[in-house]
Structures are given as C-alpha cells and as structure tokens.
Design a protein around this nucleic acid. Structure first.
Lengths: 121, 121
DNA sequence: TTGACGCATGTCGATATCGGAATATAAACT
DNA sequence: AGTTTATATTCCGATATCGACATGCGTCAA
C-alpha cells in the first residue's frame, strides 16, 4: 500500500502548498481558471488538476458560464482541520492556558454544575 | 518530481491519519513507544517510523531514559496550520461573520452612506 | 556474558502522486 | 465549417511514500 490519495480527505488535499496557495488566490470572489493561472504562475493543466483535487474534497465549488468555470472557495470543508488543530491551540495560546487555570480554579471552588460548552449550530 | 516528503513540513506530516491519531494518543502526558503501540494497535516499527516523521517536523520531542524513549507532543509546531485555517474560519463561524458585519457597520458610520445587507449564500 | 527487552532502521513491492507536454472537449467567433 | 479560446484529461518518468517483515543496536537482568 502507498500513501493515501490527495483526494482521500481535506488533510491530504491541503498538504500541498500549491493547493493552499490556490485557495488563498481565489479569495472571497469567484474567479476563473485563467485568473488563477495568472495569479499563481502555475501552468494551466496544473491549476486544473489542483482544482480537481480541491473539488473532490469539497474545498471549492464551480459554476459554469459559457466556456469558463467560476471557482469559489467552500470554507466549511476546512472545519475538520480547524477542529482537530484547535485542541492543541492552548499549547501556544497563553490566554487559553490562563482560561484553563481559571476554570480549574472555579471548578475546585464549587464542584457543582459541570457544564461543557455546546457547539454553535 | 513526486509528492512532497511527509517530513517536508507540518502540513504533510499530519496528512496521515495514523500520525494524527498518534499525537492524540500521546495526549498531555509523556509516554513510551510501547504505550503507543498498545494504544494505537499499530506495529512497533510503524509507530517508530511515524514518530520519526513527527520528530523531524518538530511535532514531538523525545527524552531518553534507559532503553525507553519518552515522547511528548510539541503543540506550537501546529501553529502554522492553525494560522492558515483561521483565515477561513469565518465561513462557518456565524459569530465571526456577525463581527464582520458589525465592523463594516461601524466603519460606514462615519462616512455618510446607507448600507444594505449583503446577500448570504 | 548471555539473553531478553525496547526501540530504531533497512529492505521489499505496490501505488499514488508530482510537473511537463501533448491532447481532448467544448463553447465562441468569423 | 473552421478556427480560436477556455478548461479538462491523458501519458510520461521520477520519486517518496505505506505496511509487513527482518534486522540492528543499546540497555537491563540473571
């Protein structure tokens, strides 16, 4: 067996710098493949292929208009990555660390009503 | 040229599920390779190799004690990932989205111009 | 010292990439 | 119809993976 496919999940898809750069290059507005070829300096086939990977993992959406395709970023596909990394955020974020200490303090003061925060819908 | 090495950067290192699971399995405490073999169900050589990758990208630190090695997670190595994903967080986080709107409102408060609500996809 | 233990490293085959070049598809223009 | 324009797909060689298995190397114990 070999390395997992780049289209296997979002983690594999964004492991390549070129694809992260492409996502950043698209930005908030829709843009065409030609736009991205110009902005990225990559060859047109490379851009198309990278976009294909991003498409299959749901990181971009396409809209056809005549002979050109308008690509846009679909950010929510990155949520799994964010969620996973988030757990380690307190390792470097001193504020979260102090919040941990505060919560621990509060909990040891009144060991009642132990509630965890809910996810926002 | 082929795909970038898994040891090239943190993005490539964490693209493999086994390595993310390994990091999660280590958790907050130090633990030995044997511990991880038990917790992960992977073979010992696999664990050692994955730890090698995590080590070269700085995601874990080791401490030798006799014939065993104590591994611990070095979270700050994940900061580049967090920083990059953070930029896309507002696409699914409604709170940040509302903050954007509020800031836009405040900014258009001093220049006299009535702003209409943008379309939300 | 011999042997068991804990971990790292090497070899192997299979495979999925990457970039580049060429080609295919499909719509618009003349 | 034939040609240009915009994008997708295919073929290619090179390479770095992954898991399984075997081996190497330091350390503790009898």
């Amino acid at each position: 067996m070999a390395r997992a496919a780049t289209t296997a999940d979002v983690f594999n898809a964004i492991s390549e710098v070129a694809r992260r750069d492409l996502l950043d290059a698209i930005g908030l507005e829709e843009c065409t493949v030609g736009d991205l070829v110009q902005r990225s300096g990559l060859s047109q086939p490379q851009v198309s292929k990278h976009l294909g990977v991003l498409r299959t993992v749901g990181l971009v959406r396409v809209r056809s208009e005549g002979r050109r395709r308008w690509y846009r970023v679909h950010g929510p596909a990155l949520k799994p990555v964010h969620d996973w990394v988030r757990a380690y955020e307190r390792t470097w974020n001193a504020r979260l660390d102090r919040l941990d200490n505060l919560l621990a303090e509060l909990q040891s003061a009144s060991p009642q009503s132990d509630r965890t925060e809910e996810d926002s819908p």
